[in-house]
Nucleic acid binder design. Structure first.
Lengths: 242, 242
DNA sequence: GATGAATTATAACAAATATTAGAGTTGCTG
DNA sequence: CAGCAACTCTAATATTTGTTATAATTCATC
């Protein structure tokens, strides 16, 4: 269990840094984010944060950990439709006013807080809009991945996406990042069985594309992979929204 | 080629009816939609309306026909990530301010117009928000379909979705609707090859699930199918947004 | 360090989907 | 209505992915 002062102070800075990279925030907006972060809530790994169909949570800033947004079919098949990483927002994009479109579960130990209200047209509101745009991009990429890529391509493409996002919020060390997901969970995001994902990972290791050991993933040539997969670096630009 | 007066008058009514079903529109809003529809533009089948990455079009109201939103991989593989049907809006949800996230192509002869600006908080603005929510729902359904359903389930699930949307805008006759898509195109939406889609359609016909002949699709027991697939009727409710 | 549970790895086999090729069918156009 | 092009259908075969089972490894806890 994290001690309170440590749990909040560190990740809060990263979260603010990341929002600031999406739009220019005023002093008072920064203060309100810090205030919100002080009211952090904690969810242990594998805990459900919001259940699909439930009254959804307010817009939420993820201070630490990863959250998965998933659907469960009646016979138990699971599909993860997207991730939220530390420093990113979620809540509104995966919900409507009356019910959550997906269930939202903590993949590891998660610290989050309710995001402050943003005035229409403010910097904060722009940052929120960009976040929603990023979610839509995530979903479109996901559809293309699942519909038209084979196992190896799916693995590399999703790991590339995660690396890019973690680099953006300063959580990657070069081409290496901490991977809190189990292979079974990763398979549920890629529409593969755990066995086939494992086989594919071995192949990727042997071909020198990546390494994945004890919760750390390294992509050995991200640029080459991206070229190979036709992955566009669909960067969000200042002013992008909706 | 459609004569101008006929092309506009008929579908415009359906489009207004559909927007009205999403939110209560004022007299002046209705008039502005009619004005916009009078400035209709025409795209023949298989024409590109907006190319991925291009400066995107303004928010657009589709008066007639179907539009596909698609990604093309460098080697030519195509994935359709969503559809817009007559009476629905598109443009903003598939774009950001600076570049379209997908290319948008006319699947049959299409008539569209630029949607009127909506004031913040107005009925029209609420209808637009709902439309964007519906697009997000479409994408999430799509990910689940492609990730975790087999060929037969994908076919039935997508046809069900299309039937529901067409029923909502009054374009279906009972459980039958006009299907402008070629099987090859439908396969590109389902992440299947045309050959396998065709086999699967034969199987669905033989098992009595559906018929698809000369551009008309009938689902023989939509409710039963929906139950079978665990398809939730994720209806948009009054007040839903963002 | 020893123990047990969870995770990862491997193999053999089964099922689903892709590929290639070609034969019907439909619908448009002259 | 003849001819052509696009689309649909079918079959044989190849490849990919799923399933089941079990072994090896890792990780947390004692």
């Amino acid at each position: 269990m994290l001690s309170r002062s440590y749990a909040i102070a560190q990740p809060e800075q990263a979260a603010v840094r990341r929002l600031g990279s999406l739009a220019r925030l005023s002093e008072s907006e920064l203060r309100r984010i810090a205030d919100a972060a002080a009211q952090a809530r904690y969810f242990p790994a594998r805990t459900e944060i919001v259940r699909e169909g439930a009254e959804p949570a307010r817009p939420t800033l993820l201070l630490r950990g990863w959250v998965a947004h998933q659907r469960i079919l009646p016979d138990g098949r699971r599909q993860i439709v997207g991730f939220t990483l530390a420093g990113e927002l979620f809540g509104r994009s995966w919900s409507c006013q009356h019910s959550a479109l997906t269930s939202q579960v903590a993949l590891d130990n998660v610290v989050l807080c309710t995001a402050p209200e943003a005035e229409h047209g403010s910097g904060l509101s722009l940052a929120y809009d960009k976040e929603r745009l990023a979610h839509r991009l995530q979903l479109i990429d996901n559809v293309t991945r699942l519909g038209r890529m084979d196992a190896r391509e799916r693995v590399c493409d999703l790991l590339l996406e995660l690396l890019e996002r973690l680099q953006r919020s300063g959580e990657a060390e070069g081409n290496t990042f901490a991977m809190p997901l189990t292979q079974e969970c990763f398979a549920d995001a890629l529409g593969l069985t755990p066995v086939h994902l494992n086989r594919t990972l071995q192949a990727c290791r042997r071909s020198g594309d990546l390494s994945w050991r004890s919760g750390r993933v390294t992509l050995h040539d991200p640029a080459g992979l991206a070229r190979n997969l036709g992955r566009k670096r669909n960067r969000l630009q200042r002013g992008d929204a909706i």
